[in-house]
């Protein structure tokens, strides 16, 4: 049943072979970008997500499957939790220590 307070959900996991974060896409395939994720806007769709997640885990394609809540924004889906935003966008820091170090030495 859809209510006014229903929050849109997507299904996320990490791929078994390399651990890369993935989201379940509309075509039923796992995609590398949250932007391409299938948006579940009512309970029946969430149930379908959960079932797809259980199946993919049982098939040993993905691990750590979870349904997360997102906000639909003009720029695409945005998870409510920071953890999930970082999973979608990558580390919030530039991770090139040599370049960063040289810049700081120069400063």
């Amino acid at each position: 049943m859809t209510t006014a307070s229903f929050k849109t959900k997507v299904l996320t996991a990490n791929r078994l072979t390399d651990g890369i974060s993935v989201w379940l896409g509309a075509n039923g395939e796992w995609v590398f970008s949250l932007k391409d994720a299938f948006l579940a806007r009512h309970d029946e769709a969430v149930a379908a997500l959960t079932a797809a997640g259980d199946q993919a885990q049982a098939d040993n394609r993905v691990v750590d499957v979870s349904v997360i809540e997102i906000e639909e924004t003009p720029c695409g889906p945005r998870p409510y939790r920071l953890r999930e935003r970082i999973r979608a966008d990558g580390p919030t820091i530039a991770y090139a220590p040599a370049a960063a170090a040289r810049a700081s030495e120069a400063a």
Partner: peptide, 14 residues
């Protein structure tokens, strides 16, 4: 610990 760097990180070159 370069100023503004990531503590403990080292690049392959380093």
């Amino acid at each position: 610990k370069p100023i503004g760097g990531i503590p403990g990180d080292a690049s392959a070159d380093q």
